[in-house]
Design a protein around this nucleic acid. Structure first.
Length: 877
RNA sequence: GGGUCAUUAACUCAGUUGGUUCAGAGUGUCACGUCGACAACGUGGAAGUCACUGGUUCGAAUCCAGUAUGACCCACCA
């Protein structure tokens, strides 16, 4: 038989994914087993896989596959998000490229286009996740705009409204002039930008006096309705009670007084534009100022902009500065660095704008969610440092603007029957709205056709905050069997960038609707960056093509590469090189398999070395299992992988296989063979969550297996007490082996030549490993001696001394030098230990165990010094 | 402006409540080795005043204070 020395992942990966699907291994239904549930952070329905998705979905798959192996009923619910603003923007742009303007379409026509777009591009990302090996329960795939999901959202809106938590208010909101919708505070990203501060001179009515204000947005003077000064500012006493004239507009506005004005900043005079600034709005309300809104929804000026009407705000800014200058109103312009709010999605500069919107009161809702994370720890964040961020946001939470001037999303279930401020009712459907509307309007003749539904849609996050519940229909039908079984879910894996958008709100919704946490553990992955620490982004072009990587390095290789760099809680610097390491690892395992498969098995006596090797490996596996378990419990996925990596590469391949393998061309005994196969199978189980494809391939190649015996549904190795004594004895033996290898290296003794070894066993070390030492170091005879061997190369492990007789090869000077070095070091070490022990405060204050260990160090060092001195004397003679 | 976190080998990171033989890993690098699973390999080596300055302690990478640098979060200063 011949097996290629290169592992061919491509055909293998497709084959096993199909096999798993065919046998329905990803599908879960409630049963008597304990559930382990993850709901996917739903990616944008029309998005494509990027590195961030690859990372967090690989982690989820690792967790799910491990849980499956550990005997849980593992259920990973996949799905996509309708991403209202992002998707609507894409559809609008696409229509525009076809010469269609959104305002020319009816809602129904537009939605038809949007659904066409979604059907065409939707779900591509889910197909890509399959290539990555994700074992999602595809039968449960959900979309946030599915009928049942939307019904849940509408139901919760009505419910929260009836509880008095949702209200409609005329407020200052964040306006995105490009998408022409409002945004929640969280969707506004502040960016530092180099701007200018314009100093503008205003005339005072019936006076020759002037005053100067400073502003970064000179176009807004057209919306000024007052000038504000600090009442304590002595510089402006003469202005009190006077009126100022707005340049260009020549409107007369009052000069008001308020301590809000910072006398130190700018000129000490503040222009008040209540329509375009939140603070000014507050001032305006306080002083009953007029509100002059100068902007159209698209960011151009309206009729209050006078001759600038129809021009964009940024164009006007330049032109009005020029006009002010020409008319002598502009004193100076300074460079000024300030923070500008921009839209998270469209990047457009946000305008504060007054409008009627829907809000959700957050303060009381947040309380149980604060408690769960910070007090009871019912919900745990990993890494823990995010608890501070969470606390800060939650304790300063503001009401959530949930309405969007978009069509793509759940339409707000509010129905208007008149033009008055309160002429509406909230109900799940228009039909249900009718009776209450008739009552409220005191008009029993009111008909369905008289009701107008609010045109706005809900914020996407107002649907995804229900996700862990709504995917199991827990909002509409909380008593259903599935919801009762799968909820609360176990782990949530997502990025810290949506901690507020999504995670915190899910916790809030979970407690509000079920009184329970939505999940127990939140693992916040780092952001994927490139080697220069830059964020991966489309515009920088530094984000590798996900599928291209899989094609190049195999899905297993990419998974390993990503996880190797994903240390807990840190951003990860992605380096393609690591995927290559993953690919190399797969090849290493493949070749170990090849070696084993190539052995001829016979009914032979098991050699001593093999028996010992196998016993040791079993102990090593057990101690590693404990270590892996610990890493997983702390979500240190990369450490768990590294522990597995070392177990397989170093302990299994480099040690066990070298120890157990028969001489070239010789057969192997059955007992050893079976034990090695068993060891390999255990390794495959540990590796499976990280490298599902390769491991299933080898598993199925090792034996003929029925579908029920597939690796994906096998059992995680049983954990027993580890024989730690054996593990540490082996470490001693491995030091002996290294010592011998070192000497071979230094003296250029080829591995093909046999050598002899004499041991002066001062440590009384077990001879259990002798047969292994003989085998791995190609030793002719191993003997124990009580006296030093003359004319031999030597090395020491603790106070044991090892001799390799080598006529003519000994350089006395060199050997002496080596011994002296070791002596010098050991003496220095002894001195420091004795120093500690001579310190009475140490002896009396330090714990007993620490003192005892120092004493044994002292004894060891003394023994070694004695031995070294004897050796030096021996050589000198 | 407020806050959080970081700073350990060339790179990426571990280092649990201060205390086992002079601080560990992976990668990279260097030397040697192509033979018998694998050169995507094997064996071995080099490489760190634990950012800096003080302090607490018998003992500090670990605790405290300050400084520097960086990252992130929050915030309405015109």
């Amino acid at each position: 038989m011949s097996i290629s020395s290169n592992y061919d992942a491509r055909t293998v990966e497709n084959k096993w994914y199909d096999y798993w699907m065919e046998h329905n291994f990803f599908h879960s239904t409630p049963n008597e087993k304990e559930p382990y549930t993850i709901v996917i952070p739903p990616p944008n329905v029309t998005g494509v896989l990027h590195m961030g998705h690859m990372l967090n979905n690989t982690i989820q798959d690792v967790l799910i596959r491990r849980a499956r192996l550990k005997g849980f009923n593992a259920c990973w619910v996949p799905g996509t998000d309708h991403a209202s603003i992002a998707t609507e923007a894409k559809v609008v742009a696409k229509l525009k490229s076809e010469g269609i303007n959104k305002p020319d379409l009816t809602r129904e026509e537009f939605l038809k286009h949007a659904w066409d777009w979604t059907d065409k591009h939707g779900g591509i990302i889910l197909e890509q996740l399959k290539k990555l090996g994700c074992s999602c329960d595809w039968e449960r795939t959900k979309f946030t705009l599915d009928d049942d999901m939307s019904a849940s959202v509408v139901k919760s809106f009505v419910d929260l409204y009836n509880k008095g938590l949702i209200y409609r208010g005329y407020r200052m909101v964040n306006w995105d002039p490009e998408a022409q919708t409002t945004l929640s505070d969280e969707e506004v990203i502040f960016e530092e930008q180099q701007g200018k501060l314009y100093y503008i001179k205003y005339k005072i009515e019936d006076s020759k006096d002037t005053l100067t204000i400073a502003t970064t947005r000179p176009e807004t003077i057209l919306g000024d309705t007052a000038i504000c000064i600090n009442p304590n500012d002595e510089r402006f006493v003469h202005l009190k009670g006077k009126k100022a004239i707005v340049p260009i507009a020549n409107r007369i506005i009052p000069i008001i007084e308020d301590e809000y004005v910072d006398m130190e900043f700018g000129t000490g005079c503040l222009k008040v534009t209540p329509a375009h600034d939140e603070n000014d709005k507050t001032l305006g309300d306080k002083h009953n100022l007029e509100i002059v809104d100068i902007l159209n929804p698209d960011g151009s000026l309206n009729s209050f902009g006078l001759h600038y009407e129809g021009k964009d705000r940024f164009v006007v800014r330049k032109e009005i500065a020029k006009e002010l200058e020409e008319k002598g109103h502009l004193l100076k312009i300074e460079d000024y660095l300030n923070k500008i709010g921009t839209s998270e999605r469209t990047k457009a500069v946000i305008e504060p704008r007054l409008s009627d919107q829907w809000f959700l009161k957050m303060e009381d809702l947040a309380k149980p969610a604060i408690k769960a994370v910070l007090e009871t720890e019912e919900v745990k964040l990993f890494p823990k440092k995010f608890e501070n961020t969470y606390r800060h946001w939650m304790e300063n939470i503001r009401d959530w603007n949930i309405s969007r001037q978009l069509w793509w999303g759940q339409q707000i279930p509010a129905f208007y029957f008149g033009d008055g401020k309160d002429d509406f009712v909230v109900a799940e459907t228009k039909e249900e709205a009718l009776t209450p509307a008739q009552k409220k309007s005191e008009n029993p003749q009111l008909m369905l056709s008289d009701l107008q539904q609010d045109p706005d849609a809900l914020d996407t996050w107002f649907s995804s905050w229900l996700w862990p519940m709504s995917v199991f229909d827990g909002i509409r039908n909380p008593e259903n069997k599935e919801f009762q079984y799968y909820y609360p879910t176990n782990d949530l894996v997502t990025g810290p960038d949506i901690l507020f958008f999504w995670v915190a709100r899910m916790i809030i919704a979970g407690y509000e609707y079920t009184g329970k946490r939505p999940f127990e553990n939140v693992f916040l992955t780092g952001l994927v960056r490139d080697k220069q620490r830059r964020k991966m982004s489309k515009s920088l072009g530094n984000s590798p093509d996900a599928l291209g990587l899989i094609d190049k390095y195999s899905a297993d290789g990419v998974r390993v590469g990503l996880l190797l760099s994903a240390s807990a809680g840190n951003d990860l610097l992605f380096d393609e090189q690591l995927c290559n390491q993953g690919k190399g690892f797969a090849n290493k395992i493949w070749n170990a398999f090849r070696l084993i498969k190539g052995w001829e098995v016979k009914d032979l006596e098991q050699p001593n070395y093999a028996a010992t090797a196998i016993e040791w490996y079993d102990a090593k596996l057990q101690s590693t299992l404990i270590e892996i378990e610990d890493h997983f419990s702390k979500y240190r996925i990369s450490d768990a992988l590294m522990a597995t990596y070392k177990l397989v590469w170093d302990d299994f391949c480099s040690w066990l296989l070298e120890m157990a393998k028969p001489a070239y061309g010789q057969p192997i005994d059955k007992k050893t063979y079976e034990a090695v196969i068993n060891a390999l199978e255990n390794n495959l189980k540990l590796l499976h969550p990280f490298m599902p494809f390769l491991t299933e391939e080898l598993w199925q190649n090792l034996a003929k297996r029925s579908p029920e015996e597939a690796l994906i549904v096998s059992q995680w190795p049983e954990q027993r007490a580890a024989n730690t004594a054996l593990v540490s004895e082996f470490e001693f033996a491995s030091e002996v082996i290294s010592g011998i290898r070192n000497i071979r290296k230094e003296k250029n003794i080829s591995f093909k030549d046999t050598i002899n070894l004499s041991v002066m066993n001062a440590e009384n070390f077990t001879n259990e490993f002798d047969s292994i030492i003989v085998k791995l170091c190609h030793i002719e005879t191993l003997s124990y001696v009580t006296d030093k061997v003359d004319g031999a190369l030597s090395f020491r492990v603790k106070s044991n001394e090892y001799f390799i007789p080598m006529a003519g090869a000994i350089n006395i000077e060199e050997e002496l030098e080596k011994l002296k070095e070791e002596l010098k070091y050991t003496e220095g070490f002894l001195k420091s230990v004795q120093g500690k022990l001579a310190n009475e405060r140490f002896v009396s204050n330090a714990p007993e165990a620490v003192v005892a260990s120092e004493k044994s160090k002292e004894a060891d060092a003394k023994a070694k010094i004695k031995m070294l001195k004897e050796s030096i004397l021996g050589l000198k003679h």
